[in-house]
Simulated assay, not measured.
Amino acid sequence: MNNEQTIEKLKQMRLTAMAQLHQQHVRDNGSPDITADEYLALLTDHQWEDRQNRKIQRLLKQAGFAQSANLAEVKHDQQRNLDRNMFARLGTLDFMARKENIILTGASGTGKSYLAQALGHQACMMEHRAIYANTARLLKKLKLCKVDGTYLKELDKLLKTDLLILDDFGLQSFDNHAREAMMDIIDDRYNKASTIIASQIPVSAWYDIIGESTIADAILDRIVNSSHRLDLKGESLRKGILKND
């Protein structure tokens, strides 16, 4: 079997990266110093790395992040009340292994969304599934899902997500549909998967925003008691630079 046939068969088996490297190797007349075992290992590693990279890119796309954020660019500042060591520990994603949550609060522009999405980006890089969502839009979507019969399917999707990021939590008061949907989300994920909530509203005011004492108690009990809490301070980071919070 000649090299062209080998390359074609590799492509048909969806080993594209391996086929491309072998094709380049043939074009360059190979390397006389490499053994057959070393060459096979080289091809295999190249295909493996390509597959992992494509998986990560797919996870990042599916997450639906609103902005590009990563841990390396996080600015730690005492004025922001962001402890470097604490956030570095969160960046290891051990909180996800323990099924814990994170609550990020602070005024508009203090970087809550960026920190949440930086952790989400890291989760994708570690091959975890993440979803980023504006809370109000997600709850409206779930309301429509009840109408078209896809509500349980959408809840199952959220449950199977390793890290759910709910941004701008509490900017709108909850109606009955929103309360029930939020209760379903939090109850399904409790002790099973991690959730990050970012909000301009202090946690002390969430009870009134959610409304209906029984459901509010149940939601907050599941969220707050299992959460790492970061309350960001300082001036808006948007000054002079137009960025999403």
Score class of each variant (00 low, 15 high):
residue 43 L to M: 12
residue 76 H to V: 10
residue 78 Q to M: 02
residue 28 D to G: 08
residue 32 P to I: 01
residue 74 V to M: 04
residue 85 N to K: 15
residue 70 N to E: 06
residue 26 V to W: 11
residue 50 D to M: 04
residue 45 D to Y: 05
residue 35 T to G: 09
residue 85 N to A: 14
residue 63 A to N: 11
residue 56 I to D: 08
residue 66 A to K: 13
residue 71 L to Q: 07
residue 44 T to G: 00
residue 29 N to S: 12
residue 35 T to V: 02
residue 31 S to N: 15
residue 38 E to M: 12
residue 59 L to D: 10
residue 46 H to G: 02
residue 68 S to C: 05
residue 21 L to S: 05
residue 45 D to S: 12
residue 89 R to T: 10
residue 37 D to Y: 05
residue 75 K to R: 08
residue 61 K to H: 12
residue 27 R to H: 12
residue 76 H to M: 05
residue 58 R to V: 07
residue 36 A to M: 14
residue 44 T to H: 05
residue 40 L to S: 03
residue 24 Q to Y: 10
residue 32 P to Y: 01
residue 55 K to R: 15
residue 73 E to T: 10
residue 87 F to W: 10
residue 52 Q to H: 02
residue 56 I to P: 03
residue 76 H to P: 01
residue 19 A to H: 06
residue 46 H to W: 06
residue 62 Q to W: 02
residue 88 A to K: 13
residue 73 E to G: 02
residue 86 M to I: 03
residue 39 Y to L: 15
residue 68 S to G: 00
residue 87 F to N: 03
residue 71 L to M: 15
residue 65 F to I: 05
residue 82 L to S: 07
residue 58 R to P: 03
residue 78 Q to Y: 05
residue 29 N to F: 14
residue 49 E to T: 01
residue 89 R to S: 12
residue 32 P to R: 11
residue 78 Q to V: 07
residue 38 E to D: 14
residue 26 V to S: 07
residue 65 F to D: 00
residue 33 D to I: 04
residue 67 Q to K: 01
